[in-house]
Design a protein around this nucleic acid. Structure first.
Length: 356
DNA sequence: AATGCGGGGAC
DNA sequence: GTCCCAGCATT
């Protein structure tokens, strides 16, 4: 038996039934692959189903407002994926008549599609014999072939891509690639691989050397940069001021309570009042603290101090700002922790105060 | 080649 | 707490 045959046989008996494995519609495969970038299967399932219900073909997505596209992506993270996906579908509709191109160069020219995603779409939807090297494949092949180089280096990725090209199934390349995903998720897992269950154990050099747990090799993650922000919950006539985060920042395009980074926590109230005045032309009085949140990104750590603010003046509203009633909180595309803040305020207001 | 970009589940 | 996930774009 060959590596490929063992793997496919295992896949046929153990594959996961997933919503994007029901058919081979290239658009659906594409959507799933974008959602699955750096994102776990369990997290994607519901988003995928909801997305396909609202955007069943490239045309619905291309025609939608970006605001709505982001709303359907809210909570998945890496929001440029959603913007790129929509931009790509606009191109598909305009340049390819709504048909997904069956061509590596054409796919990789579209925004959001890189080496991995092009290979995945081509192999799964079009039966092309293209590798799709993701984190699972890097881990599995570094163990199978005892690759001790740093897998975050592009040279190592090229090496493993060549190995996959060498071993990928001729008859079922898409299933071969998906089998590697399932093997990586269920058997050849990062910390404690379940080698006793592995269908390609006989081919694994790391197992033979008993060094599975030392592979793959990658440098330790750097600690996230920490920063402190102060945010204003600005109430006026039962409504609250929110603003859309500017592009070029983390969580670009998402809505938040006005917030500013502070360097000196001792003067955060004054900083907030000044910020709100210069940015929104509103005179406010910062009152009592509402709550503190800590929010961890992969590369950032936010400490946010939320303050209630009383607003006295100002009718001018700038672009990307609006007043909203708290009852609308679920309809807003919130920036990360600001959703929790809005929800807490809402629950507080309908709960009728501190008493149970 | 290095960095920015989210959020959450498993341990 | 740490790790890491069906990565890509930009520099």
């Amino acid at each position: 038996m060959t590596l490929s045959a063992n793997l496919l046989d295992w896949y046929d008996r153990n594959r996961r039934e997933l919503p994007w494995r029901i058919d081979k519609d290239p658009y659906k495969i594409w959507v799933s692959e974008i959602m699955l970038q750096q994102t776990r299967v369990e997290a994607v399932k519901e988003y995928y189903t909801r997305w396909l219900r609202r955007f069943p073909t490239p045309y619905e997505l291309a025609a939608a407002e970006e605001e709505e596209v982001l709303y359907y992506w809210q909570g998945l993270g890496y929001y440029n994926r959603a913007r790129n996906l929509q931009a790509a579908m606009s191109e598909v509709c305009a340049a390819y008549g709504g048909e997904i191109p069956n061509d590596e160069a054409a796919l990789k020219a579209l925004p959001g599609i890189g080496e991995y995603t092009a290979g995945a779409i081509l192999s799964i939807a079009f039966d092309c014999r293209t590798p799709a090297v993701d984190g699972n494949v890097l881990r599995i092949f570094s163990r199978l072939f005892y690759v001790t180089e740093d897998i975050t280096k592009s040279k190592t990725k090229r090496l493993i891509s060549r190995l996959v090209s060498e071993y990928i199934s001729l008859e079922r390349p898409g299933d071969f690639n998906q089998a590697l995903m399932d093997l990586g998720a269920m058997v050849c897992i990062p910390q404690t691989p379940r080698c006793a269950e592995c269908p390609v154990l006989d081919f694994c050099q790391a197992y033979a050397l008993d060094v599975q747990c030392t592979l793959p090799v990658k440098p330790a993650a750097k600690a996230p940069r920490e920063l402190t922000l102060v945010a204003g919950i600005i109430q006026r006539g039962g409504e609250y001021l929110i603003r859309r985060r500017p592009s070029g920042n983390v969580l670009a395009g998402m809505w938040e309570f006005p917030a500013i980074e502070i360097c000196d926590e001792s003067c955060e109230k004054a900083t907030l009042e000044q910020f709100i005045y210069t940015q929104f032309a509103l005179k406010v009085l910062v009152q009592e603290k509402a709550f503190n949140y800590v929010h961890i990104f992969s590369h950032l750590k936010w400490y946010i101090n939320f303050y209630h603010c009383q607003c006295f003046t100002g009718e001018v509203l700038f672009q990307d700002t609006q007043w909203i009633a708290l009852s609308e909180w679920e309809n807003i595309t919130w920036a990360g922790p600001h959703r929790k803040a809005a929800e807490a305020l809402w629950k507080n207001s309908v709960g009728g105060g501190p008493a149970a």
